[in-house]
Nucleic acid binder design. Structure first.
Lengths: 191, 191
DNA sequence: CATCTGTCCTTACTTCGTAAAGGACAGCGC
DNA sequence: GCGCTGTCCTTTACGAAGTAAGGACAGATG
């Protein structure tokens, strides 16, 4: 048996790899099982190695995860009505959240920071440019709608249940209801 | 110094006292600081005493807390349109959630159980009795709306921020926006 | 009185987050 | 070649968390 030094990891750490692994664990086994040591194992690294890339430790990790799943972007290049832009942003937000139900509670709870905050401002700007007067209020309403819809969808998917058949959170019915409610909300914003 | 046995607690434990103390801690210092030992201290009791009233430990505690803040009731005695009933349920839900921002993430994430589930069914029944065809869909939409609204309200109150001036989550502006959106949603459900 | 039952405590083990310090390695100037 | 320096990772260690197991005590019941 050759004593392998086992020092440097096969592939170096990076913030992106950390985030991916963390999301994988949280989505697969729940937030409670996302621990530094487990995350280190998944990355073939000791837990403390993570602190070099996230100096504030787990707090920073959770912040980054929340930021990651709430940061979306809609291409402003082609012209569109503010209604269509709002729809696009809402769909993008829903998709991003549904992709990672494991960190949903963070996304709904933590105040937006960093890129997520920038995305919110950009959304408001796009809606204002497209002719909507109270863009800030509209963004709040849209965010509330997306958050609530996704929360209910994930609840009904039985994601948090220990033994429930963990069917995918995305269902055709969920999407239909989402679009219906989105229409209602946007028509409500028109007045 | 007389060695006091320090045995029996001054006032015996009960599930209600446990829930109250837990909510107080979670609202005051955040979910992360709600620990069994701290909860025991607040109740003048050793941590393990709690397990006698909540055999499944912390898991059970969090379930009960989520259930507590999502269980609301609206008196069905006096007749009203389904629209008014829906409004009453939504307001009650919002109020209950805003009273305990510390456990909001649990309420939004955990699937409804026990009394919370019963309340949901009762809500659907009341709406159906008042003449609404798709009562189940309406309840889902109302829950989604309440959840999302409260989530952004609490986010904006800066509750989760470590240093932000923790102004009360309930603001006049928040209530106005809530009522506006509620009107829009209900008018959307009418079709 | 003795016994039983329900309530709470003591002890002990595992796992967690993370502070502190050190080791390996690459790139540099000499 | 040799040593310096900074980056990235490991080792070790400590306090705090959740909780399994068993003990102690009060009050009820006989």
């Amino acid at each position: 048996m050759i004593a392998v030094p086992a020092k440097r990891p096969p592939v170096p750490l990076s913030l992106e790899r950390i985030i991916d692994a963390a999301l994988h664990i949280a989505d697969g086994q729940g937030l409670r099982r996302l621990t530094m040591r487990r995350l280190g194992d998944a990355l073939q690294v000791e837990a403390m190695a993570i602190y070099h890339h996230l100096p504030r430790g787990k707090e920073a990790l959770l912040d980054v995860l929340a930021e990651h799943v709430t940061t979306v972007h809609v291409d402003p290049s082609e012209p569109a009505s503010w209604q269509d832009r709002a729809r696009a942003w809402a769909r993008a937000g829903r998709t991003a959240l549904l992709e990672h139900p494991g960190v949903l509670s963070l996304a709904l709870t933590k105040p937006p920071k960093g890129s997520a905050l920038i995305a919110i401002r950009e959304q408001a700007e796009q809606l204002r440019d497209a002719g909507l007067a109270d863009a800030a209020g509209a963004v709040r309403a849209l965010r509330a709608y997306v958050f609530g819809s996704v929360a209910v969808e994930v609840q009904q998917s039985g994601w948090a249940d220990p033994d429930a058949t963990v069917r995918d959170a995305r269902t055709a019915e969920g999407e239909r209801e989402f679009e219906d409610g989105l229409d209602a909300l946007i028509s409500g914003l028109e007045r």
